[in-house]
Each structure stands twice: as structure tokens, then as C-alpha cells.
Amino acid sequence: MEGKRIDTDIKGEVLKGQLALFNGPGQAFELREFRVRPLQPGELLVKNVYTTICGSDLHTFCGLRKEPSPTVLGHEIVGEVIALHPTHAGFDLCGQQIQQGDRITWTVFSSNPQSTNSLRGIPQKGDDLFKYGHVLVEEPEVFHGGLGTYCIIKANTGIIKLPENIPLSIAATLNCSVSTVAGALRMAGDIKDKHVLITGMGHLGITCAAMCREAGAEWIGAADIDPRRLDEALGFGADEVFNMNGDNSKLLSVLQERTNGKGIDVVFDMSGSPDAMEFGIKSLGIGGFAILIGAVFNTRSLLIDPERVIRNLLTIRGLHNYNFADFKYAFDFMKCNWEKYPFSTVVEKEFSLEQVEEAFEYAIVQKPLRVGIKL
């Protein structure tokens, strides 16, 4: 079935919207107007209402990671449903009916649900992978990121309908940071009564602390080199914070004391720092788990003692993005806990789409947990 053209009003004018095009590191964003193409089977159209700038967006902006350009950045998005293709099932992952006017967020990816990796439970690595906010802008495929008026949601994208009481600034982070942390906890197994260390207290780290607290961790340590981030971690469930900007050999002794000589049960690295990852693995006790998430950009290789990994029965696992069950877990967690922890303070400043250049510069200089783009 062919897509049906979507009109802006009763006069039948073709729908158009703006994009803040990213043309590469060191180049200014370019605000341009484009036509919205007709929807294809299984798709829906949303009007973006809020986007938060993720750390990976900043890495792309600074040239630490490469994306095709021009592109439209932004994948932590909340949108309002404008239209559904007649073939769309009309329900979200939780079984809630989706209608025009509903506020939704969606997975950062879509992929073939019948592909090998999808059937293995890792649809984020499935065939025909499409990632919002990471794709070349090439007409007519232009509206596929958060820094624009609209976004076309492709078939096989996981969608969740949002309750009205969750603030936009909190809901926007669900489909990246919060869901990735949910996946990290899944990979770590049962957290209840465990001693947990988190290295890197950005948005991933503070979310991980809160999620581990709700999962029943006995003790949560938070480590970073930024005193402000460490102060923030205490409000998100961390029992104790550690500044890693110094001699970390002493810190290993402290962690041994905190765990009665047994060592850390689970370490989550959210920083991407090789030093932090190596330290975390050294801190593990027998049967410990290291879950590595932060290094989504090019960095040096890790120095790991293989004999210690073998003799101590350590497990080292990496996670990139998440699956649909993680997305639902993240939603359930935030729905129940966004008021219990200070998630409402995460976005320190908001900007308009026309101020996108200023927003990125602010994020780089001030290093807030998030900045928001209110559309």
C-alpha cells in the first residue's frame, strides 16, 4: 500500500518543516526547510516537541566520532503523533492504543524483527538497522532526528505512549540513557544485596545509581574526576563517592574495606575512560561482573591481567544501546521514580531550535548532565 500524502490544513498544502543540519565538526548548523515525504507502510509521523542533547551528539559535534553528513542530530526525543499510516498496528510496546495527539517516545533504532540478531534478543544489531539522529540527510529521507520539526517513525520501531505527568525533559532521556542503563542491569544479573561501583557520573551514571538502588543493591559507590558530578550522585542513590583524579591505588584498598575484603560484585563503566575501566576490573571480587558502556568512541586498548580474570572467574561484558525489554523496563522505572530522585534537575538549560549552536556550545563549556531543545 502506498503512503498517503499528509496535508497541513484543509487547503491541502504540503507539510513542511525545519531541520538544523549538522554539516560536520567545526561547521555551523544550517537551518533549512524541507518537505515531509508521504508515509510508507507501518510508519507514523510525529511533531517533535522536546529533544535532549546526548553525550554521543556532543562527540559527533566535536569530531570524536564520525557520522555521515549532512545529518540531523538528536535521538533523545519526545514527539506528538500527527498521523499513522493505515497499516500501522496502532499500539505501543505496552499494548496502549496510539492515536493522533498522543505524546510518545521511541527506540533509537528500528531493524528487521526476523533477522538473526533480533531473534537472539539484540535487535539493536539486527539487519536493516536504522538509527534516529545518525543518518544522512538525503531527500526525501530528511526527517529522522530530534533537531527538526518532525520525525518519521519507521516500521519495527519500539514506541511507548507517555503519561501526561512525566516532564518532557525527563521523558526525552528514556530512549537512550535510561534504556541503556536498564540493559546494563540486565547484563549484570541480580543486583540485590550486591556491592556496586559506578565509574563516570554523567547521565548514565546517575541513572545507574538510582536504578541499582531500586533493584536492591546493598552498597553503591560512585567514582568520577568531577566534584560536581560526585555531589550530584549522592542525590541519585549513591552511598559514597570517590574522586579518581589522583592515586587510585589507595582507592582499591578503600573498596576492599567497604566490601569486607571481598571486592566489588558489579562495576559499571559509564565514562569510556580506559583508566577507569581498568580500575573497575581490578576492583572486582571473585565472580564479579564488569559491564562496559561508556567507550562508544575511539580510545586506547585496555590492559587487563588475563590470569586474574581466569582465576577470579570474572565476567566482562559490553553493551551498545538496548533491546525492547530494556526500553520497557526503563519506562516502568522512570514512571515510578522520576519524583523520588532529582531527575527534574538534569536539564540545566533549555534552548530553541534556532539556538542549537548556542546549545551545543553551552553543553561543551558548562558540561551539564543535559541541555534541552524545546520545539
Rank of each mutant, 00 (worst) to 15 (best):
T180S: 11
I206R: 01
V181F: 09
E214F: 05
C212F: 04
I198R: 01
L185D: 13
M187C: 06
I206E: 00
G202Q: 09
L197C: 00
I220D: 04
S179W: 12
A182R: 13
I206G: 00
G216N: 06
A215T: 06
A184M: 15
G205L: 04
G202A: 12
E218M: 09
I206Q: 01
V196Q: 02
E214I: 05
A182Q: 07
A210P: 06
A210H: 02
W219R: 14
H195D: 15
V178S: 13
W219N: 05
T180E: 10
T199G: 11
K192V: 10
H203Q: 13
E218I: 00
A209Q: 06
K194E: 10
R186C: 12
L204F: 08
M201K: 03
G189C: 03
R186V: 15
G202P: 06
K194R: 15
G202C: 06
G202R: 09
L204S: 01
D193R: 08
D193G: 08
L197R: 01
L197T: 01
K192A: 13
G205N: 00
W219G: 01
V181I: 15
E218T: 08
R213V: 05
K192L: 07
T180W: 14
E218W: 12
E214K: 15
K192T: 12
I191T: 12
T207D: 00
R186A: 13
V181T: 11
E218H: 08
I191M: 15
I206V: 15
G200K: 10
V178R: 11
